[in-house]
Amino acid sequence: MSRTLLAPVTLAFAALLTLMLSGCASQPASSPEKIRKALNAQAGQPDDYILGPTDVVQVSVWRNPDLSVSVPVRPDGRISVPLVGDVQASGERPEALAASIEDDLEQYIREPQVSVVVTGMGSHEFTDRVRVTGAVQQPTSVAHREGMTVLDMVLSSGGATSFAALNDAMLYRPLDGEVVAIPVKLDDILNKGDIETNYALQPGDILTVPERSF
C-alpha cells in the first residue's frame, strides 16, 4: 500500500491516539453519567460501516458484468465506476453508495440494481483496534473482535507486571468527540473472580494499567 494512501488514515489515527492518551496517567474517572452512557453505547454493526480512503469496494451491477468493478476509495474520497465516472464514496455507507450509483446509471440502463460489498477495510485499520498499555508484560495493539473483554486484553499482553496497581486501571473510550475514563478493577477480576468490571471492548478502546506509587 502506498504512502500516499496511508497518509490520511495515519494522520487521523495519530490525532485520535494523542487525544486519548493525553493525561491518561492522571486523568480521574469520568462522571457516573458519562460512564453509563459509554458502557451502554453499542459498537457499530457491519451495516453501519462508513467508507473511507484506502477501503476497497466491489461494485456489482446485476446483469451488467462489464459495469461491475473492484475499486479502491481514493484519497479524495471518490471511486471510479464505468459509465458513471467519479462517485463520492468516503463518508457513505455501502448501501447508500449503491443507491447513488443506481441513480446515476438510470440514464444509461433500465432499472439498474447495484450492490456494494466492502472487500478491504483499510480506512479502519487503526480505529478498529483495541490496546493495552502501562504496567503489563507486553503492551499490545490488536484488531477488535466481537466479544473481546478487558480480561482478554490483559491475557494477550502476557498479564500485569508485579508493579501494577491493578485496581487503578482505566478503560478509555471515545464517545461523542470526547474520551470517557472508566475505572476497571483488575485485581478483583484476576484474583477474586469478580467480573463486574470485565467490560466488553469496543473499537478504539485503550486499557491503561498504572504502576503502584512507592
Rank of each mutant, 00 (worst) to 15 (best):
D176N: 15
L175C: 05
A98R: 04
E111C: 00
E211Y: 01
G204N: 09
G177F: 10
Q137R: 12
N167F: 07
P46C: 05
A89N: 12
K192V: 00
L11G: 03
E178K: 05
A164K: 03
Y49R: 04
V184Q: 09
T197P: 01
L190G: 02
I109R: 07
S115K: 07
V142S: 10
D103N: 02
N198K: 06
L201M: 14
D48C: 03
P75R: 12
Y108I: 01
E125C: 02
D66H: 09
A7Y: 09
G147P: 04
A43P: 06
V57E: 03
E125D: 10
S157H: 04
V184P: 02
N64S: 13
V154E: 05
V73M: 04
S123L: 06
Y172F: 15
P82D: 09
G120R: 11
G193M: 05
R173Q: 09
I189E: 01
V117C: 01
A164R: 08
Y108F: 15
T10I: 15
E102G: 15
V184H: 07
Q113W: 02
L155A: 14
Q42S: 14
P65A: 11
P72E: 08
Y199G: 03
L21G: 08
M170N: 06
D194T: 07
E33I: 14
R129F: 00
S80L: 05
I206C: 06
A96N: 12
D128R: 00
L6S: 14
V118W: 02
T54C: 03
P94C: 02
P139Q: 00
Q138P: 00
R74H: 10
I50P: 05
I189L: 04
K34L: 14
G44N: 11
N198A: 05
S31R: 15
L186S: 07
V117W: 04
V69Y: 07
N40T: 11
P82A: 04
G177S: 05
N167T: 11
M20N: 05
A143Q: 14
V9Y: 08
E92H: 10
L16M: 11
G193Q: 06
F13Y: 12
W62K: 08
V209R: 02
Q88K: 14
P75Q: 08
S90R: 06
A98H: 04
T18I: 14
N167M: 09
T140K: 08
L155H: 06
L16S: 15
L171Y: 10
V209W: 06
I50N: 00
D86K: 02
L97H: 08
S26G: 05
E92A: 15
